[in-house]
């Protein structure tokens, strides 16, 4: 009979049952509220305590609710606009930080990280005070009512974009650029034909990330939004304060779904770019 050789090393903590159980309990607790939330968005009961059967009427209700639709379209407009602007700013910042050495560059690096590190509430408040200080006009026309939120979002999102793209750019060999220039490419051509194709996976990933961050953000939006620029998270917040209702569950489920899809694609693009680099 063939004897099975079992390699047992004390280092293999994956076999440790205590760790296994702790991780399992942790994951259950992590997902229980979210799954509960999604499940009860289909519950046919107003008070949402006991399961009363499947229904999708709260989703239908959502699409009839005009206020929610307005908030949703506001959120989408803000997310798309600030994604475009912050991606552009992020690219330029990343290229500048990667390619050039300038005065106080070290401190610029730190300054770039600052909006990410400080508590979100401080960011929101500083935006509020800033807009107030420069007397930012209170627009009444629709797309312009969102301008202050867009500016606020861009200012905390573009550092994320810049950091991701810079990490990607740091993989690029300088020799390739020099070769391109040797072969007669102009500066503009080098950027268009070498740098942009090289960083495109990171570009897509960071754009999706920016979109998620903007769509998700509550704190900064809460302080910069006015009465006619309500976004989806702000709307949800004002609904939550009145208590629990299945409608909130339904809209939260939709938001989670959008964000999961975006994140999935972002992760796929990022891992793809890393894999290409490994080759």
């Amino acid at each position: 009979m063939k004897k099975r050789v079992q390699h047992y090393t004390p280092v293999n903590y994956a076999k440790n049952n205590t760790l296994k159980i702790i991780t399992f309990i942790f994951l259950v607790i992590l997902y229980l509220p979210i799954i509960n939330l999604i499940m009860f968005s289909f519950n046919d009961s107003k008070r949402n305590i006991v399961w009363r059967g499947f229904t999708s009427k709260y989703y239908e209700k959502l699409f009839e609710n005009e206020m929610l639709f307005l908030a949703f379209s506001n959120s989408m407009t803000i997310a798309i606009t600030s994604t475009i602007i912050s991606t552009f700013l992020g690219i330029t910042t990343a290229i500048a930080l990667w390619k050039f050495n300038f005065y106080l560059k070290k401190y610029y690096d730190v300054a770039l990280l600052f909006p990410i590190i400080i508590p979100e509430i401080c960011m929101g408040i500083s935006m509020l005070v800033f807009f107030n200080y420069i007397n930012w006009p209170n627009f009444q026309l629709w797309p312009f009512t969102l301008s202050s939120i867009i500016i606020a979002h861009v200012s905390f999102i573009f550092p994320f974009v810049a950091i991701i793209i810079r990490a990607r750019l740091s993989m690029l060999n300088n020799e390739i650029l020099e070769a391109g220039q040797d072969l007669g490419a102009s500066k503009y051509q080098v950027i268009r034909k070498i740098i942009i194709p090289f960083m495109s996976p990171a570009l897509v990933a960071s754009a999706l990330l920016a979109f998620t961050l903007s769509l998700d953000d509550f704190v900064v939006t809460f302080f910069t939004s006015g009465p006619n620029s309500v976004t989806l998270p702000v709307k949800i917040y004002s609904m939550v304060r009145f208590g629990i209702s299945p409608e909130i569950n339904a809209i939260s489920t939709l938001l989670i779904l959008i964000i999961i899809i975006c994140t999935y694609f972002a992760i796929r693009f990022l891992s793809k770019s890393n894999r290409e680099f490994m080759k």
């Binding site: 979210i34 305590i49 998270p233 909130i248 938001l255 994140t263």
Partner: peptide, 26 residues
């Protein structure tokens, strides 16, 4: 599975806790 909740909205996750924790919660 650990990163995924990180991307869902903070507000929604807090709200989902209310349903569990309140006096007549789950």
């Amino acid at each position: 599975s650990i990163l995924l909740p990180l991307w869902t909205n903070l507000l929604i996750r807090t709200y989902s806790l209310i349903a569990l924790l309140r006096t007549k919660g789950h």
